[in-house]
Design a protein around this nucleic acid. Sequence first.
RNA 1: GGGCGACUAGCUCAGUGGUUAGAGCGCUCCCCUCACACGGGAGAGGUCCAAGGUUCAAGUCCUUGGUCGCCCACCA
Length: 922
Amino acid sequence: MPQEIPKAYEPQEIEERWAKVWFEQELFRAENSAPGPTFSIAIPPPNITGTIHIGHMLEHTQIDMLVRWHRMRGDRTLWLPGMDHAGIATQFVVERQLAKEKIRRQDLGRDEFERRVWQWKSESGGAIKQQMIRLGASCDWTRERFTLEPALYRAVIEAFLRLYREGLIYRGRYIVNWCPRCQTAISDLEVVHVERPGKLWHLRYPIVGSKGAAQEYLVVATTRPETMLGDTAVAVHPDDERYRRFVGKSVVLPLVNREIPVIADTYVDREFGTGVVKITPAHDPNDFEVGKRHNLPEIDVMTNDGHMSAAAGKYAGLDRFEARARVVSDLDALGLLERIEEITHAVGVCDRCKSEVEPRISTQWFMNMKPLAEPAKEAVRGNLIEVVPDNQRTILLNWLENIRDWCISRQLWWGHRIPIWHCADCKEMVPATDSRVELFEGHARAAGIPTKCPKCGASKLTQDTDVLDTWFSSSLWPFSTLGWPDDTPDLRAFYPTSLLISGYDILFFWDVRMIMMGLHLTGGATAQQRVPFKRLYLHSLVRNADGAKMSKTKGTGVDPLHLTQQYGTDALRYMLASMSAPGTDIVLSDDRILGARSFANKIWNAARFLFMNLEKVEASGLTLEELAAPEIRAKAPYPVKGEGALAHRWIFSRLAAVVAQVNEALEDFRFHEACQTIYQFFWGDFCDWYIEWVKPQLAATDREIALPAWRNLFAALDVALRLLHPVMPFLTEELWHKLPQPAGARSIALDRFPEPISHWPDAGSDDAMARLQEIVIAARNIRAEMKLDPKRKVAAEFWTGGPMLRNLVAENMDPLLRLAALSELQVSSVHLDPTGAAIRSTSAFDLRIAYGNTADKPAEMARLTKEIERLAKDIEAKQKRLADDNFTSKAPGKVVDDLRATWMERQIEHKKLRDRLEQLEK
RNA sequence: GGGCGACUAGCUCAGUGGUUAGAGCGCUCCCCUCACACGGGAGAGGUCCAAGGUUCAAGUCCUUGGUCGCCCACCA
């Protein structure tokens, strides 16, 4: 078997195999009745619009690392998966698909269109799930949820009805953001502002009563001249001397020839433009407010699809941009276009389809957010929800401070239909009788249908045709997925969830709204019991080399499955995690993925080394069981007889430190730090030093050496694998199974995460090993400088002042000679002669290797000179500080002492180098 | 108009007031040494954007400025 282990790690087959096993065995099913601390996390549900992209992969890697870490630490752990119906986005995608067949959704009708979307959902949703399974997400798939499934529909209706009864949800006619392409209202958050070059047209409105040569005008400036057709007033500031005499008079609205009043309102900024504003209450939020104050009529001059309506007179039927051009040229022809100013201004476009949004009066459903924002602010301020990184907390609170009402209705067909019925006779709005749902063609719809109008008694009631903003259902996700509004065992066990990990780009869309809804709707007695999550971690966004956010629609997305096939899932996961420093975005780089792949390969080969050599060991009568059974591993480190035993105590001491560091890092979402710590340990300490150090011991014929050495090696590998598992689940699972495990043990994922064992840390070994490493490095350095043939062993001399290091060298002579490629290391009690030799030294020791004929004396002298200069500078700086009473009296004693100690060491080194340079100069 | 972030080695980035500021990649030199060339060994490489300030001590904290990026915002 051992020879069968491939030389290079080949992840494909291994990953596919384990992904399948994990899923089929329901390995990650959470027990809601199990005892102990709980760790629960609800997935940010991917939209069914597409497939998993690299951003999901980053998010899932971080979540999965924490989930696996908690699970291995024995917590009752749930990662609940699911998907979002993504109302407008999905409808957009399916409409686009239909467009290829030259079909409009209106041709199909609402029911048939919905059928098509469900069809899309089953294909796309299935693909996402398969991807996630393949990428190793350790979700509890038995609890998978979908925002449009019956149970969640019921939660949506329940939430709506409660908020409606409380008066927090209301219907009204206000200015909303209207997308003429999607033909629906959208919320403020769905409007993105883009800076664009534009024009400010200055238009003359003739004053009524002035004529001929005495004709007077008021000049207004506008970026949307076509809306002038809906003007119902012109406004100036009440204190503006220039225009005071016109207030109360009228102007003739050009092209329309409607007389409209000149009004005074403090909303007008005297400094801006001409100080005169056209008032179009139906097409501008400010004008709408002004219109309310002055009882102005509201004239909507547009249609749902962005054309001019009948109210636009002769412009009716024109596209809004055509109408704009026409209005301008017509005004110009009449001599009423004073001038055109080129400006850059922010244009609101639809987040989804990028069409220019039309502010427009419309009857919609809204949610009053201020009362919900207050408890949310308190919860965040009171740290009931800890926000990481901290600066996001300020951003969050600031947003809550300035929150405005949320337009929650959408004129779409794909989504949760609003559970309100309208009376055909008296227009009374009648809510659903309760939140029950029933199945219709396999999908849920509201079942609490009112039969009679409570106001007029009529029975002709029709359900509101609007659906809810997709984020409405998302805002219930942490508790709707656990069975709310019922008081289920899952809800009791896993709510509040422990943590939310999301991208900061959806902080306002989703995270904040969950906080508000969770606090308002769930049943806990205290806010602490009602928050949807106790911690909120906002992760970075993945950007491409240009710094642009990865986007599928822009074609800049990277397919993680493709990368996975190229480099392996574990490598990709490691790469993403190792770049996940909180608060900074991630720019993908091929180099980093390659590095991660190399790391996976390194781990693979370290294990391969063990198992390959095992064959020889087994020939001598030892079995894998004797060397690596769980109960054997548990008792490591074992004392090893003879030279070089130190390394065993050292590697476990290192492990203890590494485990503690990794735990701390993961606790604070410092994924990159956890990765780097493990990497340095595994590659540097474990492979480069430990394995190399103990190789001869493993081959020793003396059982008292070989047996404990093997046992320690296997035990250390086992700890390392468990340490690595959260970030590299597949590779570690595969290798873990090659070690003997307890009967019935199914997966490393259910094994324990390493704990720093109290007898592992050993400061003495840490120090001793560090000294020995310095000696080896010093020797290698000389060898490299002298360009010695690596195969040629050379003799070296060693001097040290004290007995400690001398003993240490004697006790570890064998590994020292081997790793430094020395034939002998003669320990001298007198100072070494620098002539004809290269010497490397620290303050504690000197190491001398005699020159061959090829020695490069000038190079050595140059090196020494440079080093001496550097040291001199350093010593001077330290001396200055130590001479400063301010420093010695005010700095902590330890800092002063440490500085003095280093200062003295440097002086020793400095003197050594100077002496040596002098010798060479002779 | 507000707010946030970044600026550190050739590149991509870590860095939690306290020895000589680190990593990966790249670069230079040597080596296909019996786990791994996706490897081993040894190196070179930094006015920490600038200027002030606080402090015994600043890459780190404060102020101002610069460059770049992001978010929010109803000034026509």
